[in-house]
Amino acid sequence: MLKWAILGPGSIAHHFAAALKDEGETLLAVGARNKSKGQAFAEDFDIPRVYEGFQGVLEDPEVDVVYIATPHAFHYDTIMEALNHGKHVLAEKAITVNGKQLEDITALAAEKQLIVAEAMTIYHMPIYKELHQLIDAGKIGEIQTLSVNFNSIKENDPSNRFFNPDLAGGALLDIGVYALSFVRLFIKDEPAEVISTVTKHETGVDQQAGIILKTKQGQLATITLSFMVESPERATVMGTKGFIDVEKFSRAEKASVCYLEQGKTETIEAGETEKALQYEVRAMKELIENDVPHVTLPYTKDVMNIMDKLRKQWEISFSFE
């Protein structure tokens, strides 16, 4: 059995630890910059080894795979260090801050023959397998257009991770990565054209944006992101014969499909929202233990490339890049 460790015992780490337990996985260690927090986390989940900082976890010879739950500004150094210590890595989104960091990581992982993956729930929810089968069968025709809205009001505090440039803040790297991952899952190629507009926070990071993506085949996607308003988390995939509506698309368990020719609508259900992180665990185990194709990594690379292009258009960069 794989032995897991968690780096950074924050809120998402609590959910992931619970998912590991539900899957019957061995959670061997936790690393925390604040050891008291690490000890409390270990008590909650019966974790036998607690390390102050991350180095002890990475040097632990019994740890096979680490889950990184720190803010994305710190992912690159931690992932590279983990790979150099022979650990497989599952890192929270966004997996890195830019495409160059991801290139370095994937090159090192290939050299070390290790698996590195982004913990992107969208890629693993069972509903999307069902929807792709429906699309492949031609039920909604050729996909032409996608529309995605992801908006979430954040407290206007320049020091928090959402708006702090030293922590790679901004809506794009926080919620935009979900919207772009959804789009990439349904279009044929990485977009050839990227057009956008942005509203910046006083700190200089993006807090609201409108994005248009177009593939070389002519598929078009429109995305709105905002930290200034709240709205339903919704995505629509539109084909020549129908369309698919997905509410709460980041962890969806059902979708509404409208068939234009028949004039009818049906609801497709698959998977459970509450098991989103369990599906991530299963996918990571498959990659490590069964050597299956790493189909999500090319999507992750494409999304990172799109975000690089957007930040270049917006003239947003971080001092540590």
Score class of each variant (00 low, 15 high):
K248S: 15
V198A: 15
K254I: 00
W4S: 01
A107R: 08
E118L: 00
K154D: 10
D64Y: 04
E289M: 10
K129G: 13
Y279I: 02
A110C: 00
V246T: 05
E193Y: 14
I153W: 08
A29H: 07
D136R: 12
V66M: 10
A109I: 07
V148R: 14
H14K: 13
E289T: 13
L2G: 05
K100H: 12
G56H: 07
K216M: 08
I244F: 03
V116E: 03
A137R: 11
I187W: 13
E43K: 12
T265A: 15
I127F: 04
Q144A: 10
F162S: 12
N149Q: 11
A91R: 03
F227D: 09
T267V: 15
R49D: 10
A276W: 09
N164L: 02
G176W: 13
V183M: 04
Q217P: 00
G204Y: 06
E286Y: 09
G271F: 13
V66Q: 12
S181Q: 07
L20C: 05
Y128K: 00
A32Q: 10
I223Y: 03
T215G: 01
H201R: 02
Q101K: 00
S36V: 05
L277C: 11
V257G: 12
D104C: 00
E130V: 11
A168S: 14
P9Y: 10
I12S: 14
G169E: 04
A270R: 12
M125P: 04
T106C: 04
A29S: 04
